[in-house]
């Protein structure tokens, strides 16, 4: 839009805005007028926005706006809608299918793994750890050693009813306190500990006899842990010949276990978690890698 667009106008010299600072003037290159109207339009828009939407912070709170719109409420509404839709589709299927059926259906398996992962973080990680690796007294769920059985169905049952949880269907079976209850004497306990440790090639207590320990084992321990000490998942009796030690594998820890017994509690989750979540947890824990 040069001056020449209108040939009738004689050319003028450069115009300035009329502002001058220390002899420096500013050329006036006028903005198009519609641009100015655009600015006015945004101001009007802003005023409308202040009235209709949350805008101004107050001492405690903010101006809510006539429309009553809240981003937080909108997001929560969307989250709720998604949750309801998921419940309708996937979770209903999870609840009605058996664990084996879930594992056989790739789509359902993926849903169960995702659901189980989230539920594990919320409910199980407090004891078993965020990576399900457990700690002393709380089983590592990543490995292939299972006190109460490692098939998906057995895991589901353990989650549902727990162990020593007080639920009628819960796993039961205690490690007795052989020392505290006076069943075995200190040297007998040390002998038994030395024998048990020798099964996996670990050093025992100096001076204690593994042969004597073997006799004590056969008389007191084999009933639950088995003649070969490979354990019994019916009673939650661990395999004593492997590399996994729930309560530690140092001689002192083993002696403590025999002396005072062990009664780790896994709560029953039935009633606290719905069926779909429990099944998902079973599938997830099994899928961590150690499942049978």
């Amino acid at each position: 839009m040069a001056e020449t667009a209108n040939p009738g106008t004689p050319p003028a010299g450069p115009q300035t805005t009329g502002h001058e600072w220390d002899g420096i003037a500013e050329y006036n290159n006028p903005l198009p007028r519609w641009w100015l109207y655009g600015l006015y339009a945004t101001i009007v828009w802003a005023m409308g926005y202040w009235v209709l939407y949350p805008a101004w912070p107050l001492v405690s709170g903010y101006t809510g706006g006539l429309l009553g719109y809240s981003q937080r409420a909108a997001v929560l509404g969307e989250v709720e809608a998604v949750r309801r839709e998921r419940d309708l589709r996937g979770r209903a299927q999870l609840a009605s299918a058996t664990v084996a059926e879930i594992r056989a259906d790739p789509a359902l398996l993926r849903l169960a793994l995702a659901t189980g992962k989230a539920a594990f973080g919320d409910n199980c990680a407090a004891c078993h750890g965020t990576a399900a690796t457990g700690r002393i007294g709380y089983p590592n769920l990543q490995d292939d050693d299972w006190l109460w059985g490692g098939t998906p169905e057995e895991i589901e049952r353990t989650i549902r009813y727990g162990a020593r949880s007080g639920h009628g269907e819960a796993h039961v079976g205690d490690m007795p306190a052989f020392g505290r209850d006076g069943v075995l004497k200190r040297d007998e306990i040390e002998a038994a500990a030395t024998y048990v440790l020798s099964l996996s090639g670990k050093p025992g207590i100096p001076g204690a006899s593994a042969e004597k320990g073997a006799e004590i084992f056969a008389g007191n321990c084999a009933a639950c842990h088995g003649e070969t000490a490979t354990g019994n998942p019916e009673m939650g009796a661990p395999n004593l010949t492997d590399a996994i030690w729930l309560y530690g594998s140092s001689p002192e820890q083993v002696v403590t276990t025999i002396t005072n017994g062990r009664k780790g509690v896994m709560p029953a989750w039935e009633g606290r978690l719905d069926t779909a979540t429990i099944k998902s947890l079973a599938v997830y824990v099994h899928g961590l890698g150690g499942g049978k």
Partner: peptide, 14 residues
């Protein structure tokens, strides 16, 4: 001069 003289009658900014 011809370019700077875009129609800014009376020094209007718009």
């Amino acid at each position: 001069a011809t370019r700077a003289a875009i129609p800014a009658e009376n020094g209007a900014l718009y």
